[in-house]
């Protein structure tokens, strides 16, 4: 564990709390992509099957359980109690293409041919693009509530810190994980445009709106 990875994981955790806070405070999930949230649930469930086969640390297991449980809870909130506030008409990105694409990549380039590694690779590829429905929705509406942009920013910052963690681990431990690196780089690049708009608008106290 290094500082980049620890802060990244904590930011990831924070992003989920920000999202839950937004839904509770505004009593609405308007502007939040249910597709992105459902994709994250699929990502966590397919990646963390090693909870049953391998023990790393209490920290590792608790984080995994939290990510699975919280993503399931968010999908439930959006699907049931807050359904009337869900902006379905702007959440129109074709998420099935992302799932099929990630599945094909997972089968073509798995970490190994073990079923857990195929699913792990699938989850890595899927996580890289899971934010797309959310970014697409923000583009369609042209703006987002500030708290929704904080959520996306925390997620993007978590990914950016993972890149630094990999550079650090490469030099200190010789650690290499090409699949995670490539997918992680793609994932971070997807946030690039968003970062710029976020920093120039939200940080100056203006509503997140696209030029």
């Amino acid at each position: 564990m290094n500082i980049f990875r620890l802060v990244a994981d904590l930011l990831h955790l924070a992003s989920i709390f920000i999202l839950l806070l937004k839904i509770q405070q505004t009593k609405s999930c308007a502007g939040v992509s249910l597709k992105t949230q459902a994709l994250y649930f699929v990502v966590f469930v397919t990646r963390y099957l090693d909870l049953f086969t391998h023990f790393y640390s209490v920290y590792n297991s608790l984080m995994k359980l939290f990510f699975i449980a919280s993503s399931a809870y968010i999908v439930y909130l959006m699907w049931k109690p807050y359904r009337p506030t869900y902006s379905a008409s702007t959440d129109t990105f074709r998420a099935e293409f992302l799932i099929v694409g990630a599945a094909l990549l997972g089968l073509a380039f798995p970490d190994s041919w073990h079923i857990l590694d195929i699913l792990w690779s699938f989850s890595i590829y899927l996580e890289a693009v899971a934010i797309l429905p959310q970014l697409f929705q923000m583009t369609r509406t042209g703006e987002a509530e500030t708290i929704t942009s904080h959520y996306v920013f925390a997620l993007g910052a978590y990914r950016a810190l993972y890149l630094m963690n990999w550079i650090y681990r490469y030099y200190t431990e010789g650690y290499m994980d090409v699949i995670a690196w490539v997918a992680g780089a793609v994932q971070t690049i997807l946030y690039a445009d968003f970062f710029y708009i976020y920093l120039t608008r939200v940080m100056r106290g203006r509503l997140f709106s696209l030029p």
Partner: peptide, 10 residues
């Protein structure tokens, strides 16, 4: 059966 690889990152 071969073991799955170890992935220590979240």
């Amino acid at each position: 059966d071969e073991e799955a690889k170890v992935h220590d990152e979240l």
